[in-house]
Simulated scan of single mutants.
Amino acid sequence: MHFPRFARGRKALQSFSNPISWQPTGKLQQTLAADVRLSGTGLHSGAATTVRLLPSMAGEGRCFILARGRSRIPATIENTVNTPLCTTLCREGATVRTVEHLLSALEACEVDNCRIVIEGGEEVPFLDGSAKGWVEAIGHVGTCLAFDYNGNTKEKMAPVLIDTSYVCKGDSFIIAFPSSKIHITCGIDFPKVPAIGCQWCSYSMDAYAMEISSSRTFCIYEEIQQMRSFGLIKGGSIENALVCSSTSGWLNPPLRFRNEPCRHKLLDLIGDLSLFARNGHQGLPISHLIAYKAGHSLHADFLRRLANISMD
């Protein structure tokens, strides 16, 4: 696989005057057919929280609601703030973090409009470290057409990439090419951790439920103490994360897939790119996306470039 030469330097950004065109998908906006309720522990806070997913009106999009203060935080790129090891949304002093797995499932399952109520804290439950629990719960209740306050449906639009665009930082990058459908290719490289090494995976969204959603997060054993000293991963355990040692390999096998770490990075990417959605429209750009050694902050940088183009 050959990639274009990027501008050199610590951080280079490429954008075009009009890389996105919003176009009809031929579908109508959907919401949940019934309430969903799941509880668990937050990865970083260690707090026990409950999330209720509630049906919502067409055009409302996906919005987090913190039960403590009734604060509302729309799941859009404008509310994203850079934090280590997770995706965090913040609006008017209210914060919700570790939203990426839930948003990944909602985007893939085409739950376009949804109120996400968090009780007991400000972090989404981490469940088993994948999006499997969310996908199964959504599948159990199903989806249905969403209607606005006048009883009307709304057509679902999608952002279609019409020109190549990329962001890069060092040797990490995300590049997107125009394509007739969504296809995502993801690569990671951990040369100091032989059990992980260099991995690649490539999927269309049709494969999400079977090939992507159950891929769990992972961490390097030798880095755990440092992360905890920074107040992170208080709720992390071998029950919700794969742990790999640079010398001993995987400490809690078996893996669900040979390249499960790479697939999980792709799961995260889908969740973060869903933040391009608004007003019940699709978030993932229709394009062939290639991400290499990319993390949450680079995902957000990529969306901020695309977000310069208004839907109006």
Rank of each mutant, 00 (worst) to 15 (best):
V124G: 00
A209D: 06
E223Q: 13
D148I: 03
N152Y: 03
Y166W: 15
S214G: 14
Q225L: 10
S213V: 04
G129A: 06
E155W: 07
E211I: 01
S165V: 15
K132M: 08
H140K: 14
D163A: 07
E223H: 12
I188N: 01
R216L: 14
C186R: 02
A137M: 05
R228Q: 14
Q199G: 11
R228H: 11
F190P: 00
T164N: 05
A176Y: 01
F230S: 05
L127C: 06
R216S: 08
F190M: 05
S179H: 14
I174V: 03
A146H: 01
D128P: 11
G231H: 08
Y208T: 10
S165W: 09
H140S: 14
D148K: 10
A195M: 04
G170K: 13
C198Q: 11
M157G: 08
L145K: 12
M205P: 03
A158G: 10
S229K: 09
Y221H: 11
I174W: 02
I174F: 02
S180L: 08
L145V: 12
D128I: 03
I220F: 05
F126T: 04
G129Y: 06
K169E: 14
S202P: 03
C168E: 02
V193W: 06
F190E: 08
W200I: 04
P194V: 13
F147W: 12
E223R: 09
Y166E: 01
D171Q: 10
V193I: 15
C144R: 13
A131D: 03
K192P: 03
S172D: 12
M205S: 06
T143I: 12
G231D: 04
